[in-house]
Design a protein around this nucleic acid. Structure first.
Lengths: 222, 222
DNA sequence: CATTAGCTTGCGGAAATACGCAAAGAGAAT
DNA sequence: ATTCTCTTTGCGTATTTCCGCAAGCTAATG
Protein backbone atom coordinates (compact mmCIF):
# COMPACT_ATOMS: atom_id res chain seq x y z
CA UNK A 1 0.00 0.00 0.00
CA UNK A 2 1.08 3.57 -0.47
CA UNK A 3 2.81 5.08 2.52
CA UNK A 4 2.76 8.79 1.88
CA UNK A 5 0.06 10.50 -0.15
CA UNK A 6 -0.19 14.17 -0.93
CA UNK A 7 -3.56 15.63 -1.87
CA UNK A 8 -3.61 18.99 -3.68
CA UNK A 9 -7.13 20.37 -3.79
CA UNK A 10 -8.45 23.81 -2.97
CA UNK A 11 -12.07 22.92 -2.36
CA UNK A 12 -12.48 22.37 1.33
CA UNK A 13 -15.23 19.80 1.17
CA UNK A 14 -13.52 17.71 -1.49
CA UNK A 15 -10.24 17.78 0.31
CA UNK A 16 -11.94 16.56 3.48
CA UNK A 17 -13.83 13.92 1.55
CA UNK A 18 -10.68 12.59 -0.10
CA UNK A 19 -8.89 12.43 3.18
CA UNK A 20 -11.64 10.42 4.78
CA UNK A 21 -11.78 8.00 1.85
CA UNK A 22 -8.03 7.50 1.98
CA UNK A 23 -7.97 7.04 5.72
CA UNK A 24 -10.13 3.98 5.35
CA UNK A 25 -7.44 2.44 3.16
CA UNK A 26 -4.87 2.40 5.98
CA UNK A 27 -2.57 4.98 4.46
CA UNK A 28 -0.13 5.91 7.24
CA UNK A 29 0.39 9.48 6.11
CA UNK A 30 -1.95 11.71 4.16
CA UNK A 31 -1.15 15.36 3.73
CA UNK A 32 -3.37 17.95 2.09
CA UNK A 33 -2.56 21.32 0.57
CA UNK A 34 -4.78 23.89 -1.05
CA UNK A 35 -2.17 25.64 -3.19
CA UNK A 36 -0.07 24.09 -5.94
CA UNK A 37 3.00 25.94 -4.76
CA UNK A 38 2.69 24.38 -1.34
CA UNK A 39 2.34 20.97 -2.91
CA UNK A 40 5.61 21.37 -4.75
CA UNK A 41 7.34 22.58 -1.59
CA UNK A 42 6.13 19.59 0.40
CA UNK A 43 7.21 17.18 -2.31
CA UNK A 44 10.64 18.77 -2.51
CA UNK A 45 11.12 18.79 1.23
CA UNK A 46 10.13 15.15 1.58
CA UNK A 47 12.48 14.22 -1.22
CA UNK A 48 15.38 16.03 0.42
CA UNK A 49 14.74 14.31 3.71
CA UNK A 50 14.73 11.01 1.86
CA UNK A 51 11.15 10.26 2.84
CA UNK A 52 9.47 11.03 -0.50
CA UNK A 53 5.78 10.85 -1.17
CA UNK A 54 4.75 7.91 -3.31
CA UNK A 55 1.45 9.26 -4.62
CA UNK A 56 0.16 12.67 -5.58
CA UNK A 57 -3.54 13.21 -6.03
CA UNK A 58 -4.26 16.58 -7.55
CA UNK A 59 -7.11 18.64 -8.91
CA UNK A 60 -6.50 20.60 -12.11
CA UNK A 61 -8.17 23.91 -11.41
CA UNK A 62 -7.26 26.06 -8.43
CA UNK A 63 -9.02 29.30 -7.66
CA UNK A 64 -6.96 32.43 -7.90
CA UNK A 65 -6.82 34.73 -4.92
CA UNK A 66 -4.69 37.53 -3.60
CA UNK A 67 -1.70 35.25 -2.95
CA UNK A 68 1.26 35.31 -5.26
CA UNK A 69 1.83 31.93 -6.77
CA UNK A 70 3.99 30.41 -9.44
CA UNK A 71 1.92 27.36 -10.27
CA UNK A 72 -1.53 28.23 -11.49
CA UNK A 73 -2.93 24.78 -12.14
CA UNK A 74 -2.58 21.08 -11.52
CA UNK A 75 -0.94 20.79 -14.90
CA UNK A 76 1.78 23.26 -13.87
CA UNK A 77 2.26 21.28 -10.68
CA UNK A 78 2.59 17.97 -12.50
CA UNK A 79 5.05 19.46 -14.94
CA UNK A 80 7.33 20.66 -12.15
CA UNK A 81 6.92 17.52 -10.08
CA UNK A 82 7.99 15.32 -12.95
CA UNK A 83 11.23 17.27 -13.10
CA UNK A 84 12.21 16.58 -9.51
CA UNK A 85 10.59 13.19 -8.94
CA UNK A 86 9.81 11.54 -12.29
CA UNK A 87 8.73 8.24 -10.78
CA UNK A 88 6.09 9.74 -8.47
CA UNK A 89 2.67 8.25 -9.07
CA UNK A 90 0.16 10.90 -10.05
CA UNK A 91 -3.61 10.71 -10.05
CA UNK A 92 -5.56 13.63 -11.45
CA UNK A 93 -8.87 14.23 -9.73
CA UNK A 94 -10.96 16.64 -11.69
CA UNK A 95 -14.27 17.45 -13.27
CA UNK A 96 -12.50 18.39 -16.48
CA UNK A 97 -13.57 16.14 -19.34
CA UNK A 98 -12.34 17.92 -22.43
CA UNK A 99 -10.44 15.43 -24.46
CA UNK A 100 -7.61 17.80 -25.33
CA UNK A 101 -6.81 18.48 -21.70
CA UNK A 102 -7.02 14.87 -20.59
CA UNK A 103 -5.03 13.55 -23.51
CA UNK A 104 -2.22 16.00 -22.93
CA UNK A 105 -1.87 14.90 -19.31
CA UNK A 106 -1.61 11.29 -20.35
CA UNK A 107 0.60 11.73 -23.41
CA UNK A 108 2.92 14.46 -22.19
CA UNK A 109 3.19 13.81 -18.46
CA UNK A 110 2.32 10.13 -18.27
CA UNK A 111 -0.07 10.40 -15.36
CA UNK A 112 -1.05 7.11 -13.73
CA UNK A 113 -4.71 7.78 -13.26
CA UNK A 114 -7.54 10.16 -13.95
CA UNK A 115 -10.60 10.18 -11.75
CA UNK A 116 -13.68 12.13 -12.72
CA UNK A 117 -15.26 13.99 -9.86
CA UNK A 118 -18.82 12.85 -9.58
CA UNK A 119 -21.20 10.33 -8.15
CA UNK A 120 -18.66 7.51 -8.16
CA UNK A 121 -15.53 9.34 -7.17
CA UNK A 122 -14.93 7.42 -3.92
CA UNK A 123 -15.31 4.06 -5.58
CA UNK A 124 -13.09 5.16 -8.46
CA UNK A 125 -10.41 6.35 -6.09
CA UNK A 126 -10.27 2.95 -4.43
CA UNK A 127 -10.03 1.20 -7.76
CA UNK A 128 -7.36 3.57 -9.00
CA UNK A 129 -5.16 3.06 -5.98
CA UNK A 130 -5.39 -0.70 -6.27
CA UNK A 131 -4.64 -0.63 -9.98
CA UNK A 132 -1.68 1.69 -9.64
CA UNK A 133 -0.23 -0.47 -6.87
CA UNK A 134 -0.21 -3.26 -9.47
CA UNK A 135 1.51 -0.90 -11.88
CA UNK A 136 -1.61 -0.46 -14.00
CA UNK A 137 -2.95 2.99 -14.82
CA UNK A 138 -6.59 3.67 -14.00
CA UNK A 139 -9.11 5.94 -15.65
CA UNK A 140 -12.74 6.58 -14.78
CA UNK A 141 -15.31 5.09 -17.06
CA UNK A 142 -16.22 8.36 -18.76
CA UNK A 143 -12.56 9.15 -19.34
CA UNK A 144 -12.03 5.77 -20.98
CA UNK A 145 -14.98 6.51 -23.26
CA UNK A 146 -13.56 9.92 -23.99
CA UNK A 147 -10.16 8.54 -24.95
CA UNK A 148 -11.83 5.96 -27.12
CA UNK A 149 -13.06 8.66 -29.48
CA UNK A 150 -9.78 10.51 -29.45
CA UNK A 151 -8.98 9.62 -33.03
CA UNK A 152 -8.79 12.92 -34.80
CA UNK A 153 -7.06 14.80 -32.02
CA UNK A 154 -4.00 12.61 -32.32
CA UNK A 155 -3.42 13.79 -35.86
CA UNK A 156 -2.93 17.38 -34.76
CA UNK A 157 0.74 18.23 -34.33
CA UNK A 158 2.22 21.10 -32.40
CA UNK A 159 2.46 23.42 -35.35
CA UNK A 160 -1.18 22.77 -36.26
CA UNK A 161 -1.99 23.70 -32.70
CA UNK A 162 0.07 26.84 -33.01
CA UNK A 163 -1.88 27.86 -36.08
CA UNK A 164 -5.13 27.38 -34.19
CA UNK A 165 -3.85 29.30 -31.20
CA UNK A 166 -2.68 32.22 -33.30
CA UNK A 167 -5.95 32.21 -35.20
CA UNK A 168 -7.89 32.30 -31.93
CA UNK A 169 -5.63 35.14 -30.80
CA UNK A 170 -6.68 37.33 -33.68
CA UNK A 171 -3.95 36.89 -36.29
CA UNK A 172 -4.99 36.51 -39.90
CA UNK A 173 -3.48 33.95 -42.21
CA UNK A 174 -0.85 36.29 -43.60
CA UNK A 175 0.24 37.20 -40.07
CA UNK A 176 0.37 33.55 -39.07
CA UNK A 177 2.60 32.89 -42.06
CA UNK A 178 4.87 35.77 -41.05
CA UNK A 179 5.03 34.44 -37.49
CA UNK A 180 6.09 31.03 -38.78
CA UNK A 181 8.78 32.52 -40.98
CA UNK A 182 10.12 34.80 -38.26
CA UNK A 183 10.43 31.86 -35.87
CA UNK A 184 11.84 29.48 -38.47
CA UNK A 185 8.98 27.06 -38.15
CA UNK A 186 8.75 24.82 -41.23
CA UNK A 187 5.97 25.12 -43.79
CA UNK A 188 5.27 28.73 -43.07
CA UNK A 189 4.18 29.92 -46.47
CA UNK A 190 0.75 31.45 -46.72
CA UNK A 191 -0.37 28.63 -48.98
CA UNK A 192 0.82 26.00 -46.50
CA UNK A 193 -1.07 27.65 -43.65
CA UNK A 194 -4.10 27.61 -45.89
CA UNK A 195 -3.64 23.91 -46.60
CA UNK A 196 -3.34 23.07 -42.94
CA UNK A 197 -6.41 25.02 -42.00
CA UNK A 198 -8.26 23.28 -44.79
CA UNK A 199 -7.14 19.91 -43.44
CA UNK A 200 -8.09 20.88 -39.89
CA UNK A 201 -11.54 21.89 -41.06
CA UNK A 202 -11.97 18.50 -42.70
CA UNK A 203 -10.58 16.69 -39.65
CA UNK A 204 -12.96 18.40 -37.24
CA UNK A 205 -15.81 18.70 -39.72
CA UNK A 206 -15.89 22.47 -39.46
CA UNK A 207 -17.52 24.58 -42.14
CA UNK A 208 -15.79 27.88 -41.41
CA UNK A 209 -12.84 29.15 -39.40
CA UNK A 210 -15.02 30.52 -36.59
CA UNK A 211 -16.66 27.08 -36.47
CA UNK A 212 -13.26 25.42 -36.27
CA UNK A 213 -12.19 27.62 -33.38
CA UNK A 214 -15.44 26.89 -31.59
CA UNK A 215 -14.88 23.14 -31.94
CA UNK A 216 -11.25 23.04 -30.87
CA UNK A 217 -12.03 25.18 -27.85
CA UNK A 218 -14.89 22.89 -26.88
CA UNK A 219 -12.65 19.85 -26.86
CA UNK A 220 -9.90 21.71 -25.04
CA UNK A 221 -7.35 21.42 -27.81
CA UNK A 222 -6.49 25.05 -27.33
CA UNK B 1 -33.58 30.60 9.93
CA UNK B 2 -34.39 28.41 6.95
CA UNK B 3 -36.42 25.34 7.78
CA UNK B 4 -36.09 23.12 4.75
CA UNK B 5 -33.05 23.18 2.48
CA UNK B 6 -32.49 21.08 -0.60
CA UNK B 7 -28.95 20.51 -1.83
CA UNK B 8 -28.47 19.38 -5.44
CA UNK B 9 -24.88 18.27 -6.02
CA UNK B 10 -23.50 15.16 -7.65
CA UNK B 11 -20.04 15.18 -6.13
CA UNK B 12 -20.15 12.97 -3.10
CA UNK B 13 -17.56 14.78 -1.06
CA UNK B 14 -19.02 18.21 -1.69
CA UNK B 15 -22.50 17.09 -0.92
CA UNK B 16 -21.30 15.65 2.39
CA UNK B 17 -19.32 18.79 3.14
CA UNK B 18 -22.29 21.04 2.48
CA UNK B 19 -24.51 18.97 4.67
CA UNK B 20 -22.10 19.16 7.57
CA UNK B 21 -21.72 22.93 7.19
CA UNK B 22 -25.47 23.37 7.13
CA UNK B 23 -26.05 21.10 10.08
CA UNK B 24 -24.03 23.45 12.25
CA UNK B 25 -26.51 26.21 11.42
CA UNK B 26 -29.42 24.42 13.08
CA UNK B 27 -31.35 23.76 9.91
CA UNK B 28 -34.09 21.30 10.90
CA UNK B 29 -34.26 19.56 7.55
CA UNK B 30 -31.55 19.20 4.94
CA UNK B 31 -32.10 16.94 1.97
CA UNK B 32 -29.53 16.12 -0.68
CA UNK B 33 -29.94 14.80 -4.22
CA UNK B 34 -27.39 13.98 -6.86
CA UNK B 35 -29.59 14.35 -9.93
CA UNK B 36 -31.39 17.50 -11.07
CA UNK B 37 -34.48 15.51 -11.95
CA UNK B 38 -34.72 14.22 -8.41
CA UNK B 39 -34.33 17.75 -7.09
CA UNK B 40 -37.31 18.91 -9.10
CA UNK B 41 -39.38 15.94 -7.98
CA UNK B 42 -38.63 16.64 -4.32
CA UNK B 43 -39.44 20.30 -4.67
CA UNK B 44 -42.72 19.50 -6.39
CA UNK B 45 -43.71 16.89 -3.83
CA UNK B 46 -42.97 19.21 -0.91
CA UNK B 47 -44.97 21.95 -2.56
CA UNK B 48 -47.96 19.68 -3.07
CA UNK B 49 -47.88 18.56 0.54
CA UNK B 50 -47.80 22.21 1.55
CA UNK B 51 -44.43 21.89 3.25
CA UNK B 52 -42.28 23.56 0.60
CA UNK B 53 -38.53 23.95 0.74
CA UNK B 54 -37.41 27.48 1.43
CA UNK B 55 -33.89 27.27 0.01
CA UNK B 56 -32.30 25.41 -2.88
CA UNK B 57 -28.53 25.13 -3.06
CA UNK B 58 -27.44 23.74 -6.40
CA UNK B 59 -24.33 23.07 -8.41
CA UNK B 60 -24.39 23.93 -12.11
CA UNK B 61 -22.66 21.00 -13.70
CA UNK B 62 -23.82 17.45 -13.22
CA UNK B 63 -21.99 14.51 -14.73
CA UNK B 64 -23.83 12.54 -17.34
CA UNK B 65 -24.25 8.84 -16.88
CA UNK B 66 -26.39 6.02 -18.20
CA UNK B 67 -29.54 7.37 -16.54
CA UNK B 68 -32.16 9.08 -18.59
CA UNK B 69 -32.71 12.58 -17.39
CA UNK B 70 -34.60 15.64 -18.50
CA UNK B 71 -32.60 18.29 -16.67
CA UNK B 72 -28.96 18.33 -17.66
CA UNK B 73 -27.68 21.17 -15.52
CA UNK B 74 -28.31 23.38 -12.55
CA UNK B 75 -29.50 26.05 -14.95
CA UNK B 76 -32.18 23.72 -16.32
CA UNK B 77 -33.21 22.94 -12.76
CA UNK B 78 -33.48 26.58 -11.77
CA UNK B 79 -35.48 27.36 -14.87
CA UNK B 80 -38.05 24.69 -14.05
CA UNK B 81 -38.10 25.46 -10.35
CA UNK B 82 -38.90 29.09 -10.97
CA UNK B 83 -41.97 27.97 -12.88
CA UNK B 84 -43.47 26.01 -10.00
CA UNK B 85 -42.14 27.96 -7.01
CA UNK B 86 -41.01 31.42 -8.12
CA UNK B 87 -40.31 32.68 -4.61
CA UNK B 88 -37.93 29.86 -3.67
CA UNK B 89 -34.54 31.15 -2.58
CA UNK B 90 -31.79 29.80 -4.79
CA UNK B 91 -28.07 29.72 -4.14
CA UNK B 92 -25.79 28.51 -6.92
CA UNK B 93 -22.72 26.71 -5.67
CA UNK B 94 -20.24 26.24 -8.46
CA UNK B 95 -16.71 26.58 -9.68
CA UNK B 96 -17.98 28.23 -12.85
CA UNK B 97 -16.66 31.78 -13.15
CA UNK B 98 -17.38 32.71 -16.73
CA UNK B 99 -19.13 36.02 -16.67
CA UNK B 100 -21.67 35.07 -19.31
CA UNK B 101 -22.93 32.11 -17.34
CA UNK B 102 -23.06 33.90 -14.00
CA UNK B 103 -24.71 36.99 -15.40
CA UNK B 104 -27.44 34.99 -17.07
CA UNK B 105 -28.32 33.28 -13.82
CA UNK B 106 -28.65 36.60 -12.06
CA UNK B 107 -30.40 38.53 -14.82
CA UNK B 108 -32.70 35.86 -16.17
CA UNK B 109 -33.50 33.74 -13.14
CA UNK B 110 -32.87 36.19 -10.33
CA UNK B 111 -30.87 33.84 -8.14
CA UNK B 112 -30.31 35.01 -4.57
CA UNK B 113 -26.71 34.01 -4.21
CA UNK B 114 -23.70 32.62 -5.99
CA UNK B 115 -20.95 30.90 -4.04
CA UNK B 116 -17.66 30.03 -5.67
CA UNK B 117 -16.37 26.62 -4.74
CA UNK B 118 -12.94 27.06 -3.27
CA UNK B 119 -10.94 27.74 -0.20
CA UNK B 120 -13.61 29.89 1.41
CA UNK B 121 -16.73 28.07 0.41
CA UNK B 122 -17.88 27.19 3.96
CA UNK B 123 -17.45 30.74 5.19
CA UNK B 124 -19.21 32.07 2.10
CA UNK B 125 -22.10 29.73 2.59
CA UNK B 126 -22.65 30.99 6.10
CA UNK B 127 -22.54 34.58 4.94
CA UNK B 128 -24.89 33.90 2.06
CA UNK B 129 -27.50 32.29 4.25
CA UNK B 130 -27.44 35.15 6.71
CA UNK B 131 -27.67 37.73 3.95
CA UNK B 132 -30.52 36.00 2.18
CA UNK B 133 -32.46 35.71 5.43
CA UNK B 134 -32.30 39.50 5.56
CA UNK B 135 -33.53 39.61 1.99
CA UNK B 136 -30.14 40.59 0.59
CA UNK B 137 -28.50 38.62 -2.20
CA UNK B 138 -24.97 37.37 -1.61
CA UNK B 139 -22.13 36.75 -4.03
CA UNK B 140 -18.62 35.48 -3.37
CA UNK B 141 -15.86 38.02 -3.61
CA UNK B 142 -14.54 36.81 -6.96
CA UNK B 143 -18.04 36.84 -8.41
CA UNK B 144 -18.54 40.42 -7.27
CA UNK B 145 -15.28 41.34 -8.99
CA UNK B 146 -16.40 39.48 -12.07
CA UNK B 147 -19.71 41.31 -12.23
CA UNK B 148 -17.92 44.56 -11.74
CA UNK B 149 -16.26 44.22 -15.12
CA UNK B 150 -19.41 43.03 -16.78
CA UNK B 151 -19.82 46.21 -18.78
CA UNK B 152 -19.57 45.05 -22.33
CA UNK B 153 -21.54 41.87 -21.93
CA UNK B 154 -24.67 43.80 -20.99
CA UNK B 155 -24.71 45.44 -24.36
CA UNK B 156 -25.16 42.15 -26.16
CA UNK B 157 -28.80 41.41 -26.91
CA UNK B 158 -30.35 38.08 -27.81
CA UNK B 159 -30.08 38.56 -31.52
CA UNK B 160 -26.40 39.46 -31.22
CA UNK B 161 -26.01 36.25 -29.30
CA UNK B 162 -27.84 34.36 -32.00
CA UNK B 163 -25.44 35.72 -34.60
CA UNK B 164 -22.50 34.55 -32.53
CA UNK B 165 -24.04 31.15 -31.98
CA UNK B 166 -24.78 30.64 -35.65
CA UNK B 167 -21.30 31.81 -36.53
CA UNK B 168 -19.80 29.33 -34.07
CA UNK B 169 -22.01 26.66 -35.59
CA UNK B 170 -20.49 27.13 -39.01
CA UNK B 171 -22.88 29.43 -40.86
CA UNK B 172 -21.39 32.19 -42.96
CA UNK B 173 -22.75 35.71 -42.95
CA UNK B 174 -25.03 35.17 -45.91
CA UNK B 175 -26.50 32.08 -44.26
CA UNK B 176 -26.98 33.94 -41.00
CA UNK B 177 -28.84 36.64 -42.89
CA UNK B 178 -31.05 34.01 -44.52
CA UNK B 179 -31.72 32.43 -41.14
CA UNK B 180 -32.82 35.80 -39.75
CA UNK B 181 -35.12 36.46 -42.68
CA UNK B 182 -36.63 32.99 -42.59
CA UNK B 183 -37.42 33.37 -38.90
CA UNK B 184 -38.64 36.97 -39.19
CA UNK B 185 -35.99 38.31 -36.89
CA UNK B 186 -35.50 42.06 -37.40
CA UNK B 187 -32.39 43.51 -39.01
CA UNK B 188 -31.62 40.42 -40.97
CA UNK B 189 -30.04 41.96 -44.04
CA UNK B 190 -26.53 40.87 -44.86
CA UNK B 191 -25.31 44.41 -44.28
CA UNK B 192 -26.93 44.54 -40.82
CA UNK B 193 -25.34 41.26 -39.81
CA UNK B 194 -22.04 42.71 -40.94
CA UNK B 195 -22.59 45.84 -38.87
CA UNK B 196 -23.40 43.85 -35.77
CA UNK B 197 -20.37 41.66 -36.11
CA UNK B 198 -18.27 44.75 -36.59
CA UNK B 199 -19.73 46.23 -33.41
CA UNK B 200 -19.20 43.01 -31.50
CA UNK B 201 -15.57 42.92 -32.59
CA UNK B 202 -15.12 46.45 -31.29
CA UNK B 203 -16.97 45.66 -28.07
CA UNK B 204 -14.84 42.62 -27.29
CA UNK B 205 -11.68 43.99 -28.86
CA UNK B 206 -11.44 41.16 -31.34
CA UNK B 207 -9.37 41.47 -34.49
CA UNK B 208 -10.99 38.73 -36.52
CA UNK B 209 -14.10 36.56 -36.42
CA UNK B 210 -12.22 33.49 -35.14
CA UNK B 211 -10.80 35.75 -32.42
CA UNK B 212 -14.29 36.97 -31.55
CA UNK B 213 -15.60 33.42 -31.21
CA UNK B 214 -12.65 32.51 -29.04
CA UNK B 215 -13.36 35.44 -26.71
CA UNK B 216 -17.10 34.95 -26.35
CA UNK B 217 -16.59 31.27 -25.67
CA UNK B 218 -14.01 32.07 -23.00
CA UNK B 219 -16.38 34.33 -21.14
CA UNK B 220 -19.24 31.89 -21.54
CA UNK B 221 -21.44 34.16 -23.60
CA UNK B 222 -22.15 31.28 -25.94
C1' DC C 1 -45.81 69.09 -39.38
C1' DA C 2 -40.96 69.42 -39.99
C1' DT C 3 -36.46 68.24 -38.37
C1' DT C 4 -33.12 65.53 -36.60
C1' DA C 5 -30.80 61.49 -35.21
C1' DG C 6 -30.32 56.70 -35.52
C1' DC C 7 -31.26 52.21 -37.81
C1' DT C 8 -31.62 49.44 -41.79
C1' DT C 9 -30.74 48.23 -46.39
C1' DG C 10 -28.43 47.66 -50.95
C1' DC C 11 -24.51 48.65 -53.73
C1' DG C 12 -19.73 48.60 -54.82
C1' DG C 13 -15.00 48.02 -54.13
C1' DA C 14 -10.93 46.66 -51.14
C1' DA C 15 -9.05 43.03 -48.37
C1' DA C 16 -8.96 38.32 -46.78
C1' DT C 17 -10.03 33.60 -47.38
C1' DA C 18 -10.61 29.42 -50.29
C1' DC C 19 -8.85 26.55 -53.57
C1' DG C 20 -7.09 24.60 -58.13
C1' DC C 21 -2.87 24.15 -60.56
C1' DA C 22 1.87 23.51 -61.61
C1' DA C 23 6.70 24.04 -60.49
C1' DA C 24 10.24 23.14 -57.14
C1' DG C 25 12.14 20.48 -53.31
C1' DA C 26 12.75 16.45 -50.11
C1' DG C 27 12.85 11.59 -49.12
C1' DA C 28 12.25 6.78 -50.05
C1' DA C 29 12.52 2.87 -53.15
C1' DT C 30 14.42 0.64 -57.12
C1' DA D 1 21.47 8.06 -60.39
C1' DT D 2 16.56 7.69 -61.48
C1' DT D 3 11.95 7.37 -60.54
C1' DC D 4 8.04 8.07 -57.66
C1' DT D 5 5.55 10.22 -54.16
C1' DC D 6 4.56 13.69 -50.97
C1' DT D 7 5.21 18.31 -49.29
C1' DT D 8 5.92 23.00 -50.00
C1' DT D 9 5.50 27.11 -52.50
C1' DG D 10 3.76 30.79 -55.58
C1' DC D 11 0.27 32.27 -58.67
C1' DG D 12 -4.27 33.16 -60.24
C1' DT D 13 -9.11 33.28 -59.51
C1' DA D 14 -13.60 32.60 -57.09
C1' DT D 15 -15.86 33.46 -52.92
C1' DT D 16 -16.42 35.67 -48.57
C1' DT D 17 -15.61 39.26 -45.44
C1' DC D 18 -15.03 44.06 -44.56
C1' DC D 19 -16.43 48.64 -44.87
C1' DG D 20 -17.73 53.32 -46.93
C1' DC D 21 -21.58 55.55 -48.90
C1' DA D 22 -26.16 57.03 -49.77
C1' DA D 23 -31.09 56.23 -49.86
C1' DG D 24 -35.06 54.83 -47.18
C1' DC D 25 -37.39 54.17 -42.66
C1' DT D 26 -38.56 54.98 -37.84
C1' DA D 27 -39.07 57.42 -33.76
C1' DA D 28 -38.46 61.22 -30.82
C1' DT D 29 -38.43 66.28 -30.36
C1' DG D 30 -39.64 70.93 -31.01
Amino acid sequence: MFKKILVAEDQQSISAGLKSTLTKLDIPLIETVDYCDNALLKLKAALLKNVPFDLLITDLSFKEDHRLRKLRSGEDLIQQVKKIQPDLNVIVFSIENRIGIVKKLIDVYGINGYISKGRREAEDLNKAIKAILRGVPYFSEDIVALLHNAGNISEVNTSDKLILELLAKGLNQKQISEHFKKNNIPSGSKRSIEYRLQDLKILFEADTLPHLISIVKDIGLI
